[in-house]
Simulated assay, not measured.
Amino acid sequence: MIINKKILNVDDYYYAVFVTISESLTGFTLNELQSTGLAEIYYRYILDHIEAATFTEFLNVSKDIIENSLTQEQLTHAISAEILSKPSTLGIAQSVITLWYLGTWEGAYVNDLSYKEGLVWNVMHAHPPGAKQPGFKSWSVKPVNSNS
């Protein structure tokens, strides 16, 4: 696999690793993650809220996994074996997944946008109540996967 180096406005190499591993951990593409407007904010937020050495270790393990995986299947297996099965990286991986899906870090929202752009809303085919309305006359369209 290739580490995404086409990242907007950020020179930090580890940022590219962060976004690339986020793709695999969340199941969303680079474009989908970037379209939230939160990738750089999340990266910097994590740097400010955990020990740099701990985050760097997670990113180095991620970098090695990405660079040594030739297929998506190998990458998925390596993430399971090298990140999700080791206590030193499991907690950070879970926090990164939660951050992308819910917009929270240790139970608190990162900012107002993190609630609105949480990936959970895409998965549910919904919108964040009180923050991002579905649009005019949206009530007249059946919900996705509606049985009625």
Score class of each variant (00 low, 15 high):
Lys5Val: 12
Ala126Thr: 01
Asn9Val: 02
Asp48Pro: 04
Phe58Ala: 11
Ser35Lys: 11
Ala53His: 13
Ile79Tyr: 03
Ala81Arg: 15
His49Thr: 11
Lys116Phe: 01
Val141Lys: 10
Trp100Leu: 04
Thr20Val: 04
Asn9Met: 10
Leu99Ile: 15
Val61Thr: 13
Ser88Thr: 14
Ala16Tyr: 08
Val96Ile: 15
Ile97Asp: 06
Val120Tyr: 00
Ile41Pro: 00
Gln34Trp: 09
Glu32Ile: 03
Asn68Ser: 15
Asp112His: 01
Ile66Cys: 05
Ser138Ala: 09
Lys142His: 00
Ser22Gly: 10
Leu59Cys: 12
Asn68Val: 10
Ile21Asn: 06
Ile41Gln: 04
Gly118Tyr: 03
Pro129Leu: 06
Gly118Lys: 02
Asn145Met: 03
Ile3Leu: 05
Leu47Thr: 05
Tyr101Met: 11
Glu117Cys: 03
Ser114Asp: 06
Asn111Glu: 06
Pro143Ser: 01
Thr26Leu: 04
Leu30Ser: 07
Asp112Gly: 04
Ser62Asp: 05
Tyr43Ser: 04
Asn145Cys: 01
Ala39Tyr: 05
Leu113Asn: 09
Leu33Asn: 03
Ile7Lys: 10
Ile21Gln: 08
Tyr101Pro: 01
Ile66Asp: 02
Thr26Cys: 06
Val110Asn: 05
Val123Leu: 03
Pro128Lys: 00
Lys142Arg: 00
His49Pro: 07
Asp11Gly: 13
Ile41His: 11
Arg44Leu: 13
Asp12Gly: 05
Ser69Gly: 08
Val123Ile: 00
Thr89Tyr: 11
Thr26Glu: 03
Leu119Tyr: 06
Leu33Gly: 02
Ser22Lys: 07
Ser140Asn: 00
Asp12Met: 12
Leu119Cys: 02
Gly27Glu: 04
Gly135Tyr: 02
Glu82Phe: 15
Gln72Trp: 10
Tyr45Gly: 07
Ile65Tyr: 11
Lys63Phe: 05
Thr71Asp: 07
Pro129Asp: 02
Ile2Ser: 14
Leu84Ser: 10
Gln94Leu: 13
Ala78Gly: 04
Glu73Phe: 13
Val17Pro: 09
Tyr42Ala: 06
Ile65Trp: 08
Val123Cys: 01
Ile97Pro: 02
Leu38His: 01
Phe58Ser: 09
Glu57Ile: 15
Thr20Ile: 03
Ala81Cys: 14
Trp105Lys: 03
Gly130Thr: 02
Glu23Gly: 08
Thr20Cys: 09
Ser35Glu: 13
Ser80Asp: 14
Ser35Gln: 11
Leu25Glu: 10
Leu47Phe: 07
Asn9Asp: 12
Tyr115His: 07
Arg44Lys: 14
Ala16Lys: 10
